[in-house]
Amino acid sequence: MDLPRLESILSKYEGESTDLIPVLQDIQDTYHYLPKDELKEVARRLKVPLTQIYSVATFYKMFSLVPKGEHQLRVCLGTTCHLRGGPRLLQSLQNRLGIEPGYTTKDGVFSLETVGCLGSCAQAPVMMVDDKYYARVTVDKVPKILKMYQK
């Protein structure tokens, strides 16, 4: 375990049990998943049982116990996107990447996720790659978008 790396996260907080979710969010953002040894250390430092950490880590969608890809693809399946081709967009990404939502490509470049709504409904269907939004993503735009992130 890389203790200094974890320390740089933990030192931002006061070590209260209520810091649990923010700490896990920082770990997820830094490591792209929640490594087991790090969680044990978090349990010790925040004085929270490991069982509670596990329940939190498996309840919320943003956490993952297995490593995620370098880039997070989030396909909106909100109502407007559902009506305007979101499912087709998802299908096309699945076909191209060869993975189901919730999984990561073998080369570790992409993780695919679905989201309830990204809040850009006027531009449906919408997807996000990391923090960048893509509007009106018809199936034919998919290869170009993926290419920008592939090495």
């Binding site: 909100g78 109502t79 407007t80 996107c81 309830g116 709504c117 809040g119």
Partner: peptide
């Protein structure tokens, strides 16, 4: 926590 799909007022 504006979660309703199709809503972006609060955002």
């Amino acid at each position: 926590d504006e979660g309703d799909p199709g809503a972006f007022m609060d955002r």
